[in-house]
């Protein structure tokens, strides 16, 4: 009986708990990075996810950026038609959910990491640039942040370097590279 209790708790904690803790949400559009970054369009990350001359990273591009190519449908996909009809034509912004969204008090300068330290995007964001469609966005019911911040594994053990985006990840990497930073270098 002790064993079954143990098994029950382990099952509930490892299998049931993440399913209760996270709420799944779908992205507004089944955007394919593979099509855009692959041979068909041949775009680089920085073409849409712009780091401007002032060092400001613009993140997910606005509808205006999409409209540069998709002012009218280029192909016959249903998703593209939806983009044009529902967002581009009425010039409405897409309500993207951002996997890597950090708390307001965290400050992450893409300029320092991408332009200066030359860290490839995939080092933190994973091979997302090759995905066919956005993953399901899982939001933590307590914190309101994406599951990607903790990492896909509920144990917190990362099987790939890009899994998990918590502060210890930042600190470990900074320590490895011998950076001496104060708190307010990464907090605002």
């Amino acid at each position: 009986m002790f064993g079954s209790g143990l098994a029950l708790a382990l099952f509930a904690g490892w299998y049931g708990f993440p399913r209760i803790l996270y709420r799944s949400e779908t992205q507004p559009l089944q955007f394919s990075h593979a099509v855009h970054a692959g041979e068909k369009a041949g775009m680089a990350c920085g073409d849409c996810h712009v780091l401007d001359a002032a060092g400001r990273f613009h993140g997910i591009p606005g509808t205006a950026k999409c409209a540069e190519c998709h002012s009218a449908p280029l192909g016959d996909s249903k998703e593209e038609k939806m983009l044009v009809d529902d967002y581009v034509t009425p010039s409405k912004e897409l309500p993207w959910r951002v996997y890597s969204r950090q708390p307001d008090n965290a400050y992450f300068p893409h300029a320092a990491h991408v332009a200066l330290a030359k860290i490839p995007c995939a080092e933190c964001h994973g091979p997302y640039g090759q995905s066919e469609a956005p993953r399901v966005y899982e939001v933590n019911r307590i914190t309101g942040y994406s599951r990607d911040i903790w990492g896909p594994n509920i144990s917190g053990i990362a099987s790939h370097p890009w899994e998990g985006m918590k502060m210890d990840r930042c600190v470990t990497c900074h320590a490895t590279h011998g950076r001496r930073d104060g708190c307010i270098d990464c907090h605002k």
Partner: peptide, 23 residues
Amino acid sequence: KLVGGSAVGFFFTPVPWKLLDDT
């Protein structure tokens, strides 16, 4: 026994630690 097993098992699950972190 069942309760005891669950109680022991509870601490080997991510629940308490993850909840602490999230809170």
